[in-house]
């Protein structure tokens, strides 16, 4: 993939460039918002790693051009104190985020998810998502876990479908609220209740979830990579 790294710390770019290059990616770098915009307009990009704390621009202002102009995927890299900005970035189109300091394996895993999703978007319409133990049929609206059919209520299915479509990536609370209640202004308590009902039905140990993970202050993540099928 062509990956643009936007970070004002050269030491971080210097570390990531050889790593990504060794995995066969093409790396472009930008130290500030202006350089990033220039790269977005000139280069063909697949993925942008965007640090929100830029010296000259609010990182969120770069998201629209990255998504619309470059049609690139976007992973936000943010220090923890920019929590609010991070959620805003996800709500306006960022695909995922990684907190600083990040484990390299974690970042590479996120990049792989993006890579897979980009491949599937270019394919035909998806009807089923499949992993080793889980099958989610979007057309028939059925969920099968270890060959056992799991009955989900329509609202539970709507929420789970969104997590499945973004398997491996974070989904914000706002996005889930819109999927389940068609409104971002729903009481967060409802969402939490439905997520715990989903866990009751899907997790081996609902008190220690391994499938539907909470991202504190941000949303939820399905910790599985689901293969799309037509």
């Amino acid at each position: 993939m062509n990956i643009l790294i936007v970070d004002d710390e050269p030491s971080i770019i210097d570390t990531l460039r050889p790593v990504l290059a060794s995995l066969g990616h093409e790396v472009i770098e930008a130290g500030n918002g202006a350089q990033a915009l220039q790269a977005v307009e000139t280069a063909a990009l697949d993925l942008v790693l965007l640090d929100l704390g830029l010296p000259d621009t609010d990182g969120c202002d770069l998201i629209a051009p990255i998504k619309d102009l470059a049609k690139a995927s976007l992973i936000v890299i943010s220090a923890r104190h920019l929590e609010k900005d991070k959620v805003r970035a996800l709500d306006i189109g960022a695909d995922d985020y990684v907190d600083k300091p990040f484990g390299l394996e974690e970042l590479l895993a996120r990049i792989r998810v993006v890579e897979r999703r980009r491949a599937e978007i270019s394919g035909a319409q998806v009807n089923r998502y499949v992993s080793q133990d889980l099958v989610v049929d979007l057309a028939k609206r059925t969920v099968t876990l270890m060959d056992e059919p799991i009955h989900l209520s329509p609202k539970e299915f709507a929420l789970f479908e969104l997590l499945v479509r973004h398997s491996g990536q974070v989904v914000t609370q706002r996005q889930l609220m819109i999927a389940g209640w068609s409104s971002p202004a729903v009481d967060g308590q409802y969402l939490r209740s439905y997520v715990s009902m989903l866990r009751e039905k899907l997790e081996a140990d609902p008190s220690d979830p391994e499938l539907i993970l909470t991202e504190p202050g941000v949303g939820y993540r399905l910790a599985l990579t689901m293969e799309p099928q037509t």
Binding site: E9, P18, S22, A79, P101
Partner: peptide, 24 residues
Amino acid sequence: SHDLRTPVTVIQAAAGALRSGQVS
């Protein structure tokens, strides 16, 4: 937190790359 986290980020990423099986 920004100033302290940047060096930690670099250290963690570099050490991770040195140890990683998938990065050569």
